[in-house]
């Protein structure tokens, strides 16, 4: 029974999520849908960090690109692209992917930056991205853009907004699809390649693999998923602003993934939801102490629990 525990837990979690609307009221379901979006963001970082071993301090850059694109499109600020939310979502993902590709191309080209250097460059990039967003009036400058419309039901004629449940199921469907995709990738030979790159990058070249191309691909895919999460975020929260591309959010998602467990996709996903949920519960009471607790929790996890809180019990692979 214990050997199959991770499988049962994994299936159990998805079943619970599917059944959640039966037990939760509208407001809580909306909240859960928002948590799912954070979870999606966490999945993207878990993929690039846990699977490929690339530590990125600026993953929010791509999340923010997706969020901004979604807002700009649905608010009609980019008339050439129309106002459709689906365009917004798709272009948000594509934008995140393109941004990630560009940054990765720069960092990995030539001899490529080492892990630590790369991490620092992504940190600086996140800081600069936030500063740039604050100065760019077209995208709302310091205040960002408000009044982003919620998701619209495509199957009604009056452009009625999706109900809370419908929004929830849409987000859940997207999240499940992405999760399955990433799971399939990690089971393929490409997933083995990423694990090898994470473990001993140089050795992997001597087996004939083009390591740089593999990292580029992984980074771009992670960027796309971050962008997708950003687009969904904006549609649910109704706004976008510069902190969404900055190092603050980038650090938060790092904490979620580290606490949840970076090596196991579902663990990172659950970690995001868990941390966010605890934050909701405690931040009123703790106020400023919450962030302090987070910082200390992060140190604790890094030193003592590098697998994260849920890494072991949700690990579907038979080894380790």
């Amino acid at each position: 029974m214990t050997r199959r525990l991770p499988l049962f837990l994994t299936i159990g979690i998805w079943v619970l999520l599917l059944l959640a609307p039966l037990a939760l009221d509208d407001w809580r379901i909306s909240q859960l849908a928002q948590f799912l979006t954070y979870g999606l963001f966490a999945l993207s970082l878990a993929f690039i960090w846990g699977q490929a071993g690339i530590l990125c301090f600026g993953q929010a850059i791509f999340f923010g690109i997706g969020a901004y694109l979604m807002a700009l499109i649905t608010l009609g600020k980019l008339p050439l692209l129309g106002e459709s939310q689906w365009t917004g979502i798709i272009l948000g993902a594509v934008g995140g992917g393109v941004g990630a590709f560009g940054l990765a191309l720069f960092m990995l080209g030539g001899r490529g930056l080492s892990g630590a250097h790369l991490a620092i460059v992504t940190l600086c990039a996140a800081v600069v991205a936030e500063v740039a967003a604050q100065r760019w009036d077209f995208i709302g400058g310091f205040n960002g853009l408000l009044g982003v419309p919620p998701l619209v039901a495509p199957y009604t004629r009056d452009d009625m907004f999706l109900s809370s449940n419908e929004t929830y199921f849409l987000v859940l469907a997207i999240v499940m699809a992405v999760y399955l995709l990433l799971l399939l990738i990690s089971r393929s030979s490409f997933g083995t390649l990423l694990a090898a790159i994470r473990s001993n990058e140089n050795r992997t070249r001597y087996f004939g693999f083009d390591v740089t191309v593999a990292k580029l691909f992984a980074f771009s895919l992670a960027g796309m998923i971050s962008g997708l999460a950003g687009a969904l975020f904006t549609a649910q929260f109704g706004f976008v602003s510069p902190p969404l591309v900055g190092f603050g959010l980038s650090t938060e998602v790092l904490i979620w993934v580290a606490v949840g467990g970076r090596e196991v996709l579902l663990a990172a996903f659950v970690g995001a939801i868990f941390v966010r949920w605890v934050e909701n519960l405690l931040s009123d009471k703790l106020g400023q102490y919450w962030l302090l607790a987070m910082g200390l929790m992060f140190i604790f996890v890094v030193i003592l629990a590098p697998r994260g809180l849920f890494g072991r019990i949700l690990n579907l692979s038979k080894s380790r």
Binding site: A196, R198, G208, F209, V213, K318
Partner: peptide, 26 residues
């Protein structure tokens, strides 16, 4: 690869055996 299992260790070079281990084929 010390962190990976024996199976994964062998699976990796095996994936390159066809001499064209591009991302799409992998």
């Amino acid at each position: 690869y010390p962190e990976l299992s024996v199976i994964e260790n062998i699976a990796l070079p095996l994936a390159a055996a066809n001499r064209h281990p591009g991302v799409w084929s992998l």
